[in-house]
């Protein structure tokens, strides 16, 4: 009898949502219900679609950030990887404005992301430099290169047709960016759950020496994870350029810390080895809805920052308290 009572909750909770994800979804529902009762536009499909569009850029960045965080590493080069990919891809398009050839810009941007990711991964995996410092350095180098070259050459900044279509277009009423986010999410879940590479990410994140002794090529896993993150940053940067109609400096700045925050709010441990992608999606939605609700309330920037910090401390504090209890 008692075992039946005990096993019941564990069955209902073993859905693909773990504790943190559930907490975040509860917070989102509360936010929408409370927000909606004060501001009716909260319930309108148009408004929610608009929020999804804003959240999609952050969501794609967070997918990359999560894979790196699962390794127990961090990627601080997100802002200027986004800006570099957007600047170079729009410059390629500007130099080759013909309809078909201009899509080379898209490839160039993805190439930039992959290259930055490779350099990041190489420094961390082979040179054994702490990722926090190494990616900070690569971020600064990208910043330096872009400021230097764009200061001397007036780079044309023009998104390609595809970038514009994804950034601004809609498919069946849904913003195209959101469809890309969904595609990225499906790919990420498949990669983490169903591929050897995904399994290895969790293993390396749990204990790199143990993974190494189990004949896992830990260097390759780390480098590939950083390449994935670099490509995600590049993708988000180019879509943002398509959305804005151009690339601009500092376009990536608002995505670094919220991207990490979304992953952590979703219950992924910064020590690596543990975390679910559903949590990251929930974290992105929570951050996006929270900031949009504060915008509707015309809260000053100061209040936004304070609310943002408090939510992270309270929610992540709750997770770690709960984790300490179950230990």
């Amino acid at each position: 009898m008692s075992s039946a009572v005990k096993s019941k909750p564990s069955v209902s909770w073993s859905l693909p949502f773990d504790g943190p994800t559930r907490s975040v979804f509860v917070a989102i529902v509360v936010l929408i219900v409370v927000g909606g009762s004060f501001f009716p536009q909260f319930f309108s499909p148009y408004y929610l679609a608009q929020q999804m569009q804003n959240g999609a850029f952050l969501g794609i960045v967070s997918a990359g950030a999560m894979v790196v965080i699962l390794l127990g590493q961090i990627d601080l080069s997100v802002p200027w990887t986004m800006t570099a990919a957007a600047t170079i891809s729009t410059a390629v398009v500007g130099a080759n404005p013909q309809a078909g050839i201009s899509e080379l810009g898209l490839l160039a941007g993805l190439g930039v992301g992959a290259l930055v990711g490779f350099v990041n991964g190489f420094g961390v995996a082979v040179m054994r430099i702490p990722s926090m410092i190494w990616t900070l350095a690569t971020n600064n180098i990208l910043l330096g290169l872009l400021v230097y070259f764009s200061g001397f050459y007036a780079l044309a900044s023009q998104p390609s047709l595809v970038m514009r279509a994804i950034g601004q277009g809609k498919v069946m009423g849904l913003p195209a960016v959101v469809l890309v986010w969904i595609a990225v999410s499906v790919l990420t879940i498949f990669m983490l759950k169903r591929t050897v590479f995904g399994r290895n990410i969790y293993l390396v994140g749990t204990s790199e020496p143990a993974a190494y002794l189990s004949a896992i090529n830990t260097r390759r896993v780390t480098i590939l994870a950083f390449v994935f993150a670099g490509v995600m940053s590049a993708l988000a940067g180019m879509m943002l350029a398509g959305y804005a109609g151009q690339s601009y400096q500092r376009m990536g700045d608002p995505y670094l810390l919220p991207g990490i925050a979304a992953v952590v709010l979703g219950g992924t441990s910064l020590f690596g080895g543990a975390g679910r992608y559903a949590g990251t999606v929930a974290g992105v939605l929570l951050i996006t809805l929270m900031s949009s609700m504060l915008s509707i309330m015309q809260a000053p920037e100061a209040a936004k920052q304070i609310a943002y910090g408090l939510v992270i401390i309270v929610m992540v504090g709750l997770y770690s308290r709960r984790a300490a209890k179950t230990e």
Binding site: L257, I260, A261, L270, E301, Q305, A307, G309
Partner: peptide, 27 residues
Amino acid sequence: LVVVVGKLQAIIATLAAGAIFTGLALL
């Protein structure tokens, strides 16, 4: 206190606290 009592990782704790301090500076 957030790091020790709240048991948050230093990166995320100081990141969040930094947002609060920035907000206070703006106020």
